[in-house]
Amino acid sequence: MTEEMPDTGTINAFNTSIIDEFRANGGKVGGQFEGANLLLLTTTGAKSGEPRVNPLAYFRIDGKLIIIGSFAGAPVSPAWVHNLRANPAAHVEIGTDAFDVTARELPPAERDALFEKVAASAPGFAEYQAKTSRVIPLFELQPA
């Protein structure tokens, strides 16, 4: 099992293009994410205190808005996970709607049950979990 770290510069450039396309098209993007449920999550940088925007897949499961810290199965969580753990207050854009949220990391039993539902609808996340030794975290975003 090889765990590779994604290149930060490449990720940032890729994310910036998705964010720009998302905002220019009312939350719609093309390419590999065409038709996917994407949101923009703005967190506060744990070290910098600066706003950080990340495009993420999201799921609505059992009435909950769920995001997944998969980082494509990398050996570490994405930076936004660290930011939410340090400061759970965040801002979300879905389509043309924008609102404040409070993130709640799901405890193990709840995470495991919901992860099965995520993996059933999006098998790629099960593949990411299989690639890494860390437990991929799930967060519920609750309106603030």
Rank of each mutant, 00 (worst) to 15 (best):
S48R: 01
P55V: 03
R23A: 01
A46W: 15
T8P: 12
T10C: 02
F14T: 13
I67Y: 14
S70I: 14
D7W: 10
A46R: 15
K64F: 10
A36S: 12
F59V: 11
N15W: 13
E21Y: 10
F33L: 12
N15E: 01
G27T: 09
G9V: 04
Q32L: 14
I61D: 01
D20Q: 14
I11L: 13
F71A: 09
I19Q: 02
E21H: 11
P51H: 05
G69A: 08
N25W: 09
S48H: 02
S70N: 03
D20L: 09
A74M: 08
G63D: 01
G45I: 08
N15C: 09
F14K: 06
A72H: 04
P51R: 10
F59D: 04
V53G: 00
P51V: 07
K64G: 00
A57W: 11
L40R: 03
G31E: 00
L40I: 15
R23Y: 09
T16V: 08
I11G: 00
L41N: 04
A24H: 11
E34Y: 06
K47A: 02
T16W: 09
I67H: 05
F14N: 06
D7H: 13
G63N: 04
L38K: 06
A24V: 10
Y58I: 08
R23H: 13
R23Q: 13
G35I: 14
Q32C: 00
G49F: 01
Q32S: 11
I18N: 03
T10W: 12
